[in-house]
Design a protein around this nucleic acid. Structure first.
Length: 277
DNA sequence: ACCCAGGAAATTC
DNA sequence: GAATTTCATGGG
């Protein structure tokens, strides 16, 4: 995707199928906050930026031209979501409806370790509180950036901590899970990059070596952190959606882009809770 | 007081 | 082994 510098940042022109609110505030990343003008501020890959869309141009303020690839990858700009949406809309009429409802959803390519940790935190939790815990984790243990924001802490940094050190996060029983994840990643016992290309079941098993990582957290890590877009995480919302909206269908029926379909369905379900009364 | 939240571990049957 | 309970915390 063509990337140009402008005074204040970088920009990508003629970007389609991207809505910042649908993508950054739909429960895949927990580090973005909407500004009054509709732009979003957040941190990824240790860089604090502000993202905005004007017409069909994606503007990344405070980004350097050398980071064009980082942001192009992060927003998955090379993948043709319009075509994928057409393709998966044929699978089921309700999926077609969900995709039409939020065509601006994209699957972010987040840092694997960050995705792992944030979805460990997500278990039996709500999105608002997850954001608070993630914020305190970064503030307490991440590197301070020049503008006062904080990077997500490294596995190496967190591996030197104890569960009690994480008490200020108020993450409860998840503290020891985070420490176990940090130690196994930093120690090489769990190799995240291997999960990018490994056989899917094998990648799942690798992640599930971590205490506190089951099938659902593993699937979210694979989808949002390692861009395994065939992953189809099933949480309470997806369970409801599968029961009521897609009876007799299984996750594997959604094909090679199941993860994208999953996000359309997840978002559509959350925006229409009355469907499940 | 009760229930739920992008679940998984621990315990019990 | 499969079903149930527990695990911290905060908001409705």
């Amino acid at each position: 995707m063509d990337c140009k510098e402008f005074y204040g940042g970088i920009k990508f022109e003629n970007v389609s199928d991207l809505d910042l609110r649908q993508t950054l505030d739909c429960g895949q990343s927990f580090r973005w906050n909407e500004n009054p003008d509709g732009s979003f501020s957040g941190v990824a890959f240790g860089k604090s930026v502000r993202a905005a869309i004007e017409e069909k141009t994606l503007l990344i303020y405070n980004a350097s031209p050398k980071d064009c690839k980082i942001w192009s990858d992060y927003f998955d700009l090379e993948l043709e979501y319009g075509k994928i949406r057409e393709q998966i809309s044929k699978i089921h009429p309700v999926l077609s409806e969900a995709a039409k409802y939020a065509p601006g959803i994209r699957i972010l390519r987040q840092e694997p370790y960050e995705a792992l940790c944030t979805f460990i935190i997500s278990q039996n939790n709500n999105i608002k509180r997850i954001k608070g815990i993630v914020h305190r984790l970064c503030e307490g243990f991440g590197d301070r950036l020049s503008d006062g924001e904080f990077a997500f802490p490294s596995a190496e940094r967190m591996a030197g901590l104890t569960a009690d050190d994480l008490a200020p996060l108020r993450a409860g029983f998840r503290n020891r899970y985070l420490i176990d994840a940090a130690q196994k990643v930093a120690g090489g016992e769990v190799q995240l990059e291997k999960c990018r290309t490994a056989d899917y079941e094998e990648a799942r098993r690798e992640l599930m070596k971590i205490t506190g990582v089951g099938v659902k957290v593993a699937d979210c890590t694979l989808l949002f952190g390692l861009h395994r877009i065939e992953a189809f995480p099933v949480d309470v919302w997806m369970k409801r959606a599968m029961d009521k909206l897609f009876p007799k269908m299984e996750p594997e029926d959604f094909g090679e882009y199941a993860g994208i379909a999953q996000q359309y369905i997840f978002h559509y379900s959350r925006m229409h809770p009355e469907l499940f009364d």
